[in-house]
Design a protein around this nucleic acid. Structure first.
Lengths: 238, 238
DNA sequence: AGGACTAATTTGTATTACATAATACATCTG
DNA sequence: CAGATGTATTATGTAATACAAATTAGTCCT
């Protein structure tokens, strides 16, 4: 999944030779999926929101055939779901499932961090640190969308350094599934500050190739996210 | 994914109350997916095999529309993939990816086993042990298909006892992705014998609610599977 | 208001169509 | 004849249309 993201990191082309043009055209389906995903991640389509095929077709200006292929995929991913009565809506993740999603993410992130340290070159580490700077900048900016993008890029670096694309895909899926919850928690300044610190701790551990510390940092990171997202004061509006 | 599997475990209905009839009709799409998945798992469609839409339509007797929806889903799951030249085929998993898949499975299984011990009732444990018996019987029978089914049922029990459906889905996906490799290794008698032992160790640990031992057993189990599947003597035909 | 009947939507599936891309096959040229 | 070029065939991506079955909304009746 997320082929687009992965393919976009083309190596530096040597001058004098033509490089194959990647993605002559991203398939419409991918673009629809991308659009919907973004909409969900950004909260344009809130959890629970009902989706009507015809409307989406009109808004996206695509045929129902293509739309449905995209919807099918998102449903397979679990971020859309059909009610018993066949109505499609953005999945509302239960607290229990969210808890599980976070737990799984925790183990997975610990795993890839481990692999990263084991396999990454010095350059990879440097690149990751740089990506980390961008991530921190995003947190400081307070712009949630930017955080989401930066965070994903950060993961991407770790996973590709760890040479574990599968984990990347799974993590991304999990993240998306909890994006409904995440959003609010990411908006809280204190969480942002905390996140910056966490990134620092993690990067420091990675930089000195301290597997144990890094695993712990990764796990802690997710644990905190979970806590912040889950038992967030639901009574904010009160 | 695998909605069908999940929905089929309806709780015991108290007498005197009507239970909603589940799955009034499994959608055609699900059935197509199921058929293709089984074909892949059983090796009817070997890794690398090319798939032609029209042919599949004819064989399955469904419209291209429906077929494509199914194909899309399987592709999203990673068990089918498009070549850069748009040819669809059963994914051939690289050794590196397989290694990762197994590693991830290892951590996930350790996690759910942990959760199982933490949350399962005595009944759940009893049910799991029973399921384990069936699994062992399957291993002893030497019938690979039966093993696959039993193994999945076993996982299902663990995950539902652990109340972690998400993990179940992910594990299933991973299993499917490596099914090409698995098959051969499952056929080897020694592996079967070994598997029976492993199940016993795991169940024993779970029965006495020994988290550490159980985690270790689960992890060991996957590690062994991986070893058996991966560095399997490729030179069998030689 | 409560209930039954009808009309309008929505979804699942199928068919047909067509442009573009990919492959196989035939031809030409040196 | 090898290699290159052109052409026919097949496959895929996307759209449009159709229609039955299920669902929902709306209307009318009492």
């Amino acid at each position: 999944m997320d082929k687009a993201v992965r393919e976009s990191k083309n190596g530096s082309g040597g001058a004098g030779r033509l490089t194959a043009l990647q993605e002559p055209q991203v398939s419409l389906r991918s673009r629809i999926i991308e659009a919907l995903r973004r909409a969900i991640e950004c909260g344009v389509l809130a959890p629970g929101a009902r989706l009507v095929e015809r409307e989406l077709c009109e808004q996206l200006k695509v045929s129902r055939t293509s739309l449905r292929e995209a919807l099918g995929e998102l449903q397979a991913e679990g971020i859309l779901s059909y009610s018993p009565t066949r109505r499609l809506s953005v999945s509302v993740i239960s607290a229990a499932d969210a808890e599980n999603a976070y737990r799984i993410r925790g183990t997975l992130e610990a795993l890839v961090v481990d692999q990263f340290i084991e396999q990454a070159s010095e350059d990879d580490v440097a690149a990751l640190i740089e990506e980390g700077d961008r991530l921190k900048a995003a947190y400081r900016s307070g712009d949630v969308d930017r955080m989401l993008v930066a965070k994903r890029a950060f993961y991407d670096r770790i996973c590709s350094g760890a040479q574990n694309t599968i984990a990347f895909d799974i993590i991304n899926r999990l993240v998306l599934r909890t994006s409904g919850l995440r959003r609010r928690s990411l908006q809280r300044r204190e969480r942002q500050v905390q996140s910056v610190k966490e990134v620092d701790v993690l990067l420091a551990a990675i930089a000195r190739r301290d597997v144990e510390a890094a695993r712990k940092a990764a796990l802690q990171n997710v644990t905190n996210s979970a806590r912040s997202a889950l038992h967030t004061d639901e009574n904010v509006p009160a």
